[in-house]
């Protein structure tokens, strides 16, 4: 089935976390909508608590127990994932959609060899065994440039470096040739040169396997390196979304602007002080009415405290949710 250019469509997704007492509700994701085209790389940028990871987990439907998707639609190849049964969802996971987690050191079961963990999805989804399985595994290990794969497959996670483990996690994630790959802070735990190597690998895999990729990150640098488009989240909502160059060259939301201005840059020394954003991110269980960024916003209007701004279109693909933008 072909659903045109769009692989994934998320419409007004709300994922809330219920507190133990049942009273405290954290609006982790609060009305998020976006599309992902085939072959496209979308960056979801946000701080901790922005809802970026919860959005990713909602798509994969592997939310923690206390979290629930309250409303919305997640269309994957035109089919609503939220309507699928557990068994059906399991068949999609690992086969058509996959994910890389933040810390490779804890992404693999320490008691099993990496080989047996690489074999699992191939056995389950592809029903491979014997020589075809072994061949496929070696092939995958070389796809993520791991030297002497036969030896490595017999080793345990603790015998390898973080960079190597993350490449193995990558190999597992792409083992069944998925259409969608979500990478949640894939390089945050890695050293700089290893991080650069892994981002290269991700790019190569994306281009050679025609993957659509969602990169979840707090780092504009990672987005600048990999993404075609980015979506900036704050307090469970999308505050700005647009092509990567648009966002960097003409950010419109005050949060995006402030974040970009607050990042130090080794190539532009001399500016002694960084522009900082005062205050800290809000408590998602006690969101004020209106725009959640209003208390920290340098250009706040009276209206911002009362009403949440809708989405305003700036260019064909560039949108922002801000009353300032609407006023201009």
């Amino acid at each position: 089935m072909n659903h045109g250019d769009t692989l994934l469509q998320v419409k007004d997704l709300k994922t809330h976390i219920l507190g133990r007492d049942g009273l405290r509700v954290t609006k982790a994701v609060d009305g998020v909508s976006f599309d992902l085209k085939r072959g496209e790389t979308l960056g979801i940028i946000g701080e901790s608590g922005s809802g970026k990871t919860m959005t990713a987990l909602s798509i994969m439907r592997i939310l923690p127990e206390a979290a629930r998707v309250i409303s919305g639609e997640i269309l994957f190849n035109g089919e609503n994932l939220l309507k699928k049964g557990d068994a059906e969802m399991r068949r999609l996971r690992g086969e058509q959609m996959s994910m890389i987690l933040q810390d490779p050191m804890v992404s693999l079961d320490p008691l099993f060899t990496v080989g047996s963990q690489l074999a699992e999805p191939l056995k389950v989804h592809r029903r491979l065994s014997g020589a075809p399985l072994a061949n496929r595994m070696t092939e995958l290990m070389s796809a993520v440039s791991i030297p002497s794969p036969e030896t490595r497959l017999k080793q345990y996670p603790h015998q390898m470096s973080g960079g190597m483990l993350q490449r193995i996690v990558g190999a597992i994630a792409i083992s069944c040739d998925p259409q969608l790959l979500i990478a949640d802070e894939p390089t945050t735990a890695l050293d700089p040169t290893v991080q650069a190597q892994f981002l290269d690998l991700l790019e190569t895999l994306r281009d050679s396997k025609h993957l659509s990729v969602i990169v979840v990150t707090h780092d504009f640098g990672v987005a600048a390196r990999l993404c075609d488009r980015v979506m900036v989240m704050y307090a469970g909502r999308v505050v700005e979304m647009g092509p990567i160059r648009e966002i960097f060259d003409h950010p419109r939301h005050p949060y995006t602007k402030a974040l970009l201005a607050s990042i130090p840059d080794a190539t532009e020394l001399g500016a002694r002080r960084l522009r900082s954003i005062e205050g800290s991110p809000p408590d998602l269980a006690m969101l004020p009415p209106g725009c959640p960024f209003a208390p920290r916003c340098p250009s706040v209007l009276e209206r911002c405290h009362r009403e949440y701004p809708g989405e305003f279109r700036i260019a064909s693909e560039h949108v922002a949710s801000c009353w300032q933008v609407s006023a201009q």
């Binding site: 190597m164 040169t193 991080q195 650069a196 640098g221 600048a224 160059r245």
Partner: peptide
């Protein structure tokens, strides 16, 4: 040189030529 070239770009068009290191530490 390699360490600084592995820095993430500050801008999308800053995907500069990187010095690729082979192997691990």
């Amino acid at each position: 040189q390699a360490l600084f070239s592995a820095r993430l770009p500050a801008r999308p068009d800053g995907r500069a030529a990187r010095i690729k290191l082979s192997g691990e530490i």
